[in-house]
Design a protein around this nucleic acid. Structure first.
Ligand SMILES: [Mn+2]
Ligand SMILES: [Mn+2]
Ligand SMILES: [Zn+2]
Ligand SMILES: [Zn+2]
Lengths: 136, 136
DNA sequence: ATAATCTTTGCAATCGAGTTGTACCATAAG
DNA sequence: CTTATGGTACAACTCGATTGCAAAGATTAT
């Protein structure tokens, strides 16, 4: 896995204190995180600084956002080599029981036949149900 | 197409003034509508009455909601015979230019192979890009 | 090295979609 | 007619998202 410094360098984003701690935190998570999750996890952080950091990361394709319908936008670190193109699109899974949201990096977006003249640019795909921990 | 009265009767939802006007409005739209859209379109309507009407409709599977990442939940009338089961899942399209959200009833959800032990219950699938009107 | 300039950060304030409490009203039941 | 039930209108509130602004920090020009 790439380090914080490597990622910031590759994506040409200046390395600052807040950015380092936010990205390091995100790299260690197995589920997507909301702004609130991050703020709560990083005790001395400021909400708006984290917010702006997330915006910067998203603009520079370090992370991507997921709208899972929970009311809070979730963020996850992009896979190595990701450029947020169509080929990088993947499904997400939201657990109705434990409310965790996962990136299903192994389930790529399978091209669908859109109506005539419609052009796809991005997608937000969220499958909902029970995760392996909750499906018992 | 079914009438307002037929739908309410089939779904066993009592016919009231607000419900009639909201459902009639929704039936005439070709794109999904937000609470704000509906409130604005129906001049003498009350926001919370429309809100509770939408909740009632959704609980009774008259309409379904779409989280397209625009910040407002959109609603669309379910297809005839829809029971909001897995078989009724379909893709949606959000136009980045004109901000309209469409139900792609003709593009059903194609089952994906989830990780072991994950169980699908619902899905929110939104493809984004340019609609036929804006892709020129 | 110093000054000018640009960027990032912290704090407070604001915005707006969604939601809820409550009183009033229409209709159905007794 | 009287009461119970469910629907509606209005106002207030919640909370995630966003912004204004000034201080602090980093970078560039002189
Ligand atoms: Mn993802
Ligand atoms: Mn739909
Ligand atoms: Zn779970
Ligand atoms: Zn369009």
């Amino acid at each position: 896995m790439q380090t914080v410094d490597e990622i910031l360098k590759i994506k040409k984003v200046k390395n600052t204190a807040v950015r380092t701690v936010v990205l390091r935190y995100l790299l260690n998570q197995e589920k997507a995180q909301s702004l609130k999750d991050i703020k709560n996890a990083l005790v001395y952080s400021d909400r708006s600084s984290v917010f702006r950091t997330l915006k910067t990361f998203e603009e520079n394709k370090i992370i991507h956002s997921i709208h899972d319908g929970s009311g809070m936008v979730k963020y996850a670190v992009c896979a190595e080599g990701c450029n947020c193109d169509l080929k990088d699109l993947h499904y997400h899974f939201y657990c109705n029981n434990c409310n965790k949201t996962f990136c299903l990096f192994d389930i790529p977006f399978q091209n669908i036949k859109l109506p005539n003249n419609f052009k796809i640019q991005q997608a937000n795909m969220v499958v909902k149900g029970l995760c392996n921990n909750c499906n018992k």
